[in-house]
Write a protein that binds this DNA or RNA. Structure first.
Lengths: 123, 123, 123, 123
DNA sequence: GTGGTCTAGACCACA
DNA sequence: GTGGTCTAGACCACA
């Protein structure tokens, strides 16, 4: 459920944070569902448990997930994940669109890109 | 002409690369115009000359600017800057739009953002 | 009668200890009254009996409650609970007040907080 | 400037976070002043650099300090430290006062404690 | 078993 | 030199 790109410039722990946030937004991890344990996920991804730990702890600090004593980590409310992602992504879109305009990307091209991603079923 | 954010997660040398590319696309630095020298720009921005050097070297390797013997650095053809930026920016937009969709950003919101930036004058 | 916050940083067994001590101080559990059994309380709170066990054991070691053979656990004298709580709480208050002063909490604000809690009936 | 209590139940990295926040509130570390480097502070305190790293990174995430590229970490605006501390401390005080009341701590005792800490020069 | 803390130490990008 | 990331591995409290 999580694909890592070890050669990416984005650190592994950030890739994990983003992916978990996506899984919560997609409701593949519904609210209060248990996430894989630090150790099992580390094993599965072939990386060190500390790296998962770091991702989970930041997600908890942001309120996207929560931790229960010796039980494990659980998905928080979808709205939290959505809220943080919206804020971040709208900023990124604004920056990218500014540069797109300078680089002569036309509104038609953007419309095509939007159609490609949002397809027919947006709202 | 170049505003740096030293506490940004984007390294200073990348901020400089992006900004110079923008200045070339905006034709504030027309083709073959001379760019500020490494030293003077470093002074002006209050940073280490090595950082400017690194930005200039990468821009030259990408063909966005070119160096002439003991004369200095000069803006390359606008098309080169545009081409590289388009490629990068379209990729970023694709990623951001995927996450925007998950976060429930509506097509109307995107249209509004586009209108805000592209406004009437898509040059 | 006991509300747990599983996602709190305070371990569950400590939350239970504190709450039982409170119940004794409030005389909701008068001296020598029987406390819920380990098993029943574990059931009621939906947690592992070991956790209750640990709380009860520490309370007994501190003299706040006592155990009778095969009968169960009973509330100790109110003074014991009061004594331990006073000691702990005065220390906490001292620490918090130091930081409050640094953070610019005024004496007026503290007076208001005190009024809010102690109200008219300082029992 | 930082005294650790290794035997405390409070983790070392939290002690460091609190102490740095205090130093900023006390204006011993004025805004934009450089904090000791991760390595030097680790050396000085005789602990592992990773522990300092963790403290600094959480402080940065909370906006109490900020990091500049390969330069170091710097104190943020005093208001940020104050704001976070106020919020936390007022909550702690509320809890402690509730328990103090149950334990029969009198308003006179509290007034004495307050006088002891706030002395003559409050507000 | 589960997460939390910490050490020791490596390697990297950046300034 | 400075912080950032990651590994390997230990030990602990808690459930």
């Amino acid at each position: 459920m999580i694909q890592l790109d070890l050669s990416s410039r984005t650190p592994v722990y950030l890739q994990i944070k983003e992916r978990i946030t996506e899984l919560i937004m997609m409701e593949i991890c519904p609210p209060d569902s248990r996430l894989p344990s630090v150790r099992s996920l580390a094993m599965e991804l072939g990386i060190n448990p500390n790296t998962i730990q770091k991702a989970y702890q930041e997600l908890e600090a942001e309120g996207v997930i929560y931790t229960v004593g010796g039980k494990g980590c659980f998905a928080g409310r979808r709205e939290k994940a959505v809220g943080l992602t919206r804020q971040r992504v709208l900023g990124e879109l604004r920056d990218s669109l500014h540069q797109a305009q300078l680089a002569g990307v036309t509104e038609q091209e953007l419309a095509a890109l939007l159609e490609e991603i949002y397809g027919g079923d947006s709202k």
